[in-house]
Design a protein around this nucleic acid. Structure first.
Lengths: 227, 227
DNA sequence: GTTTCTTGTGTACAGTTGTACACTTATTTT
DNA sequence: AAAATAAGTGTACAACTGTACACAAGAAAC
């Protein structure tokens, strides 16, 4: 005998998994139909309504699931402990690995951030924002880049996260197991993040210099006309 | 009397514009139907087939149109000539302005890069890649960052473009004419690009140092365990 | 001026969509 | 044990989908 609430959770999960499967097979979430999701889950169309009023509502539930995955990733990354010298490349590798391990959820995330309902877009942005905040907290805790203001640390976190996440679709689009391509993306991304942190290490000093330069130059503007 | 080919081009454009309008109103391109596009264009559903065999094919035509817009933007940016001291903030402002001027095409681009058909995703990536290449060419022509290798310049271009384009959806999602929000995004993005170029100015020197450091450290690894 | 070609229309049809309503079945509550 | 609740089914329907086919109107070619 199976409890009623267990049964309910099972088919709920089954519905969500079916939607993700359809997304992983190349469909866009917003072009899915309630009926094909239900069919895929082996359930009558009307059963859907016992769980969600809408595909939109189900989308938000999937966004939550993605949020859980992100938190899991962060926890694991911390537990494993990152070597100080290879922190950046390790983190990038870690991310790439997880994208390949959970292609459906990451595909869904990438789709939703630009193409979901307004509520979905906001939800996904919040998840990534939270990820960026956690990163900044860690940097502060480690005493890395102590010379940067709070606002600028947030700017930096946003930049780093966006850079890494920006590769998601490209990773997912690679033909199955073309390892050299993946390696190229991994390397490029690592370099990019490294360059970002290199810039960050000079940030405040240099930015003040730059400010003064701009003030001076605004009187006598040097212009570049290209070509 | 109107020439036959003119008439054809007119309704073709009308179809494409209708699709863009529907996208701008919040629909995802891949959830549009041939019939609603035709209806919006004031044309019988079957007329669609005289121009495209598919909504997918029309999508590629729209991608071309976006490419044209990008080229126009680049040309205009060059003609206007950028002041050397405010090159970065000017470029960011220029981009933000154009996103607001052509919201439909940019929304379409943002949707398609993560959510279009495989062919569409590739097309959009190519357009942005071309944009990045042009940027790198300009930097070389101006003699900026001459110490960076070709590969790394491409990496840098990709990073800069991705950073700027990453703000597109966020800009488009802002409530109509909330100028202070736009200003915040503009500032953050400018800072990010500035930070990137700051990192780039130190790139080669520092990266060699870092390489050596990693080699040394790989024997005696310092580990951070957070919390 | 006649024929041919091309763009767009109208009708038709089978398949799919979301959802309403009445139902079964099985678990919980009483 | 009876009654109530809840999850899932089956049928039904009107709206919409892509597209095939025959056709109209006018421009282009001859």
């Amino acid at each position: 005998m199976v409890s009623q609430v267990d049964r309910k959770l099972i088919t709920r999960k089954s519905l969500m998994d079916s939607a993700l499967a359809l997304v992983a097979e190349g469909n866009h979430y917003s072009s899915l139909s309630l009926r094909e999701v239900a069919k895929r889950a082996g359930v009558a169309p009307n059963a859907f309504y016992r769980h969600f009023k809408d595909l939109d509502e189900m989308g938000l539930a999937l966004a939550d699931e993605f949020g859980l995955l992100l938190r899991l990733i962060m926890r694991q990354a911390r537990l494993q402990g990152l070597a100080a010298d290879s922190m950046i490349s390790d983190s990038v590798n870690f991310y790439v690995e997880y994208v390949q391990k959970e292609p459906a959820l990451f595909r869904f995330m990438a789709q939703s951030i630009t193409g979901g309902s307004p509520a979905m877009r906001e939800a996904m942005r919040n998840e990534l924002g939270h990820f960026a905040n956690e990163m900044v907290t860690d940097l502060n805790r480690l005493g890395i880049l102590p010379h940067i203001s709070v606002t600028d640390m947030n700017m930096l976190g946003h930049l780093a996260i966006q850079t890494v996440f920006g590769n998601t679709t490209e990773i997912l689009d690679l033909p199955e197991s073309s390892d050299n391509m993946i390696e190229a993306i991994r390397e490029r991304c690592t370099k990019q993040v490294r360059l970002i942190f290199l810039g960050a290490s000079d940030w405040n000093v240099q930015s003040e210099k730059q400010q003064k330069l701009e003030d001076k130059a605004s009187r006598k503007k040097k212009m570049f006309k290209i070509k």
